[in-house]
Design a protein around this nucleic acid. Structure first.
Lengths: 205, 205, 205, 205
DNA sequence: AATGAATGAGGGTTCATTCAT
DNA sequence: GATGAATGAACCCTCATTCAT
């Protein structure tokens, strides 16, 4: 018993997911203001009014879609970092995972990036903060890996938090560069460059 | 002495500048779609119609405002790089200048960043490309400085273009980190970290 | 019995009709450019946006309103001409019907007339042509009646098409004259005059 | 002695004429509402403000332009009618003159026609009346010619005023028909038809 | 007297949101 | 609960008119 309810809840959750997916697709294709609720309803194959039973307004839907994706990314990246592997393997896995996540979704990356960066304005008040928290958490986890690496004398002896921020900046920059012009600038080489910057005595080796 | 014409032209230019300034303020405060032409007119203290004597539509005004600022930033940063100084001095000056430029204009930085990154959609077609060109030029100039540094055995022996991209990513990341929480994370320390990542034998010293 | 669908369709058609009626009223009262969509919405007792569910823009609404009325007039007049009556009866019926149609709608007559004439400019491209086709059709039908009359030696032996055009011109002129000053110039006398001009040997009688 | 003033007045009159000509050209090309005062100023090669020294507003300019042309037409047509010629010659001259006047100016004809007809709305209040007076005067003069013709037993014995109105309607209709499709419907034949309708015993001859 | 830059009311249209069915 | 027609506020832009130069 309660299965009836449960089934209904599952169904509701599935519908919500369909809406979020449709919304995210359209938002990343055209940008927030160029997507109408009607278009989202159509893409998601729901009636316009039905969307409003799940999200109180467009704003809310946007936030939910972004947070959904951000949460997914965050989960993937933290999973990668928390594996039972060595420091170098973890960082390599992180860098690779980030590329794997964003490559097929460059638009979403931009969106996410803009939010992470801050191009969010009052409009998305709240979203900014929530994504900020995720980002802070990620930095903290990265810093902890860095710390481990420094103590193991694998990484250069710099402030772990700074190194985490640096890694974020480097991966973002190389990702963008790669996505802009995939041929001219293979991502693998970027990984090498990033590694060398962090590794202790890398030149000596 | 042509002062008649010159005065009128100067006046026109001043008005245009006022409009661009007002537009930029508002766009960075609220985002493109949340700013009405009426609001820009009011902020700039012109009549609505007057704006249309200078810019053919909102789109045009936005592009002009962004390009104006982007050009200004680009000029400042390339000036810094082309001084008759050593490699290290040049890079330090660059990093500092970037902070000096963006610190008071974090919103504009986000805007610029978003455009550099790509959150621009069809809407701003053209702008994206033009800013992209400026950015490419900057990278090229940075790479040339890096090359000089590598050949002088001051910097690590990595691909100069990659190092340029890396520097961009690092400065952006640290700037954002600093601007988010100025107390906790002094920008000066970031500069140290950045330096150390690029300097040859920095750990040995 | 499909009544559900039918009812909705009927409702839709009724709404469309109300909008067209309101639009036609206002357009004939004040002219195309002096009527705002808001005013039409108000007169038709719909919200502004609702009108746009039926007509894609003001232009479209105008054309639809004109064509609606033109079609109605055309139907009425061709019906009159195609009755199983004699030539004289047909022409008399035509002249009378025209008066009956336009008398209560002098403004619409002007509008129709202007379109028939050509005061439409690019703006109403298309409408002009469509109304022109209706007009040509009417002339052709009139000419055919004239032809019958000529062959029956009831009407003067002139070119039927010319006679049709002439009848149009005469009825228009007398209608306008009558509508301008109904007392001074009874329409019945106009009919007599028109008849006499076309009848063979009318003076001899 | 007054020559100075006179010269200035002449100059003013010439300027006024240039403005009216430019305005009429544009109005007939595009229609009242699609012509801006700026465009008229440019076509007339005057400054925008200067136009307002001659006409208090756009409305006023339109009326003046229409009345100017209407007066010109009226003068031409009444001149033709008041010549020392026979009735038939006068009517023929009238019909020909009307074609000569309007053929190169079909748009103005439509405009004039619309005003004569009545598509004028509140907007052009006044203009309508004034053109109406000219039109009435023309009808009266035509009627007087008709009367002479009837008394001379050249024309059919119908009410002269009706015949005048009829002639107006016929010439308008044939003119429009001709202007719409000049090849298919030579105006000369129309003249024949018109003549036959009015001439006494024309079929007998 | 001539100029044309500046003004701002007003119009067409879109679209987030509501609510009767 | 689901639907989508109806609503109307708000936006971009034009252009007749004014007035400082």
């Amino acid at each position: 018993m309660g299965t009836g309810l449960s089934r209904r809840e599952k169904e509701r959750h599935r519908q919500r997911g369909d809406m979020l997916a449709a919304a995210l697709e359209l938002f990343s294709e055209k940008g927030y203001h160029h997507v109408s609720m009607k278009a989202i309803a159509k893409r998601a194959e729901f009636a316009l009014g039905t969307i409003y039973r799940f999200f109180s307004n467009k704003e809310d839907l946007y936030k939910a879609a972004m947070l959904e994706k951000a949460g997914e990314y965050h989960r993937t990246l933290t999973d990668v970092l928390s594996g039972e592997q060595g420091v170098l393997a973890a960082l390599n896995a992180y860098i690779t995972a980030k590329a794997r996540i964003f490559a097929p979704n460059i638009e979403i990356f931009y969106l996410y990036f803009a939010e992470t960066g801050g191009v969010s304005f009052n409009l998305r008040a709240g979203l900014h903060e929530e994504i900020g928290l995720l980002h802070d958490d990620l930095i903290k986890r990265l810093a902890s890996v860095m710390d481990k690496g420094v103590r193991a004398r694998i990484l250069r002896d710099l402030d772990p938090h700074d190194m985490a921020v640096a890694l974020e900046g480097l991966t973002n920059a190389f990702l963008l560069s790669w996505l802009k012009d995939p041929e001219r600038h293979p991502y693998e080489e970027s990984i090498n460059t990033i590694s060398k910057l962090f590794l202790e005595g890398s030149l000596a080796a």
